[in-house]
């Protein structure tokens, strides 16, 4: 339970511009324990989303290492990295990132396209995930026909349907009102209760304090503080 599922060491991510360099992540050493609900907080531009993308394998660090279990992410082959994203992790974004021309069910099914799940099993699991999130009546609706909260629930269903070890949630409540924000984070908390590690980026400190177990605050790409709740 307490072994680290993710560990970073001297993690740096710099973005080069014409005349200067942005240090989005600067020498970050941190650990995420298995089954933990971790909140990354900070103001805009603090590097919290970049740190999340690095841990999710969606971006590559400038230097430093990220360990997923016993594997060093930088040493993984492209196929191993894709397999990690396809099987062991799920992502939830602020802007939902659902495919607009696909129905809710098809969007959830899409998460299992790349881990060789047979089509009938895919549909079965997607229906089950949507039902779990109270969307059984909205399965055949396209994202444009769903509310923001419903779209985010579809996104969470898409993240959890493959039973990942970790869910990376990047500002999942950023586009939602307070009521829906609480609803979404409650769902994440519930999933965390089922053993899924949750790493959530948010600028809502109150929400973080209410649901997470630990809060890491980033300022200009560095860890400024860490609070165990």
């Amino acid at each position: 339970m307490n072994s680290p599922i993710i560990k970073t060491k001297n993690l740096c991510r710099y973005f080069k511009r014409a005349n200067y360099e942005i240090k989005a992540i600067d020498n970050v050493d941190m650990e995420v324990k298995r089954g933990e609900f971790l909140a990354l907080v900070g103001s805009s531009g603090s590097g919290k989303s970049t740190l999340l993308a690095l841990m999710a394998g969606l971006d590559a660090p400038t230097s430093g290492t990220i360990m997923i279990g016993d594997s060093i992410m930088g040493e993984m082959s492209p196929n191993e990295l894709s397999s990690y994203r396809a099987n062991r992790m799920g992502t939830v974004f602020q802007s939902f990132n659902l495919i607009p021309h696909r129905t809710a069910l098809q969007n959830v099914e899409l998460a299992m396209f790349f881990n060789n799940t047979p089509p009938d099993v895919r549909t079965e699991k997607a229906i089950s995930a949507l039902e779990k999130l109270g969307l059984s009546e909205r399965m055949d609706h396209r994202p444009s026909d769903l509310s923001g909260g419903e779209q985010q629930r579809v996104a969470i269903a898409r993240a959890l349907v493959k039973k990942p070890d970790i869910i990376f949630a990047d500002e999942p409540t950023g586009n939602l009102d307070q009521e829906h924000s609480n609803q979404i984070v409650s769902i994440l908390k519930e999933l965390n209760g089922e053993g899924i590690t949750i790493i959530m980026v948010t600028h809502d400190l109150e929400l973080a304090q209410k649901y997470s177990e630990r809060i890491i605050k980033l300022v200009y790409g560095k860890i400024e503080s860490e609070e165990q709740l």
Binding site: A56, L58, P78, N79, S82, S83, Y84, R85, A86, N87, T91, N97, L98, I99, L110, A111, F113, F114, N115, R158
Partner: peptide, 16 residues
Amino acid sequence: RREIGVLKSLGASERD
């Protein structure tokens, strides 16, 4: 582009 990004975040490899 966004769809390709989503597919990659869902585990699609460059080859896929």
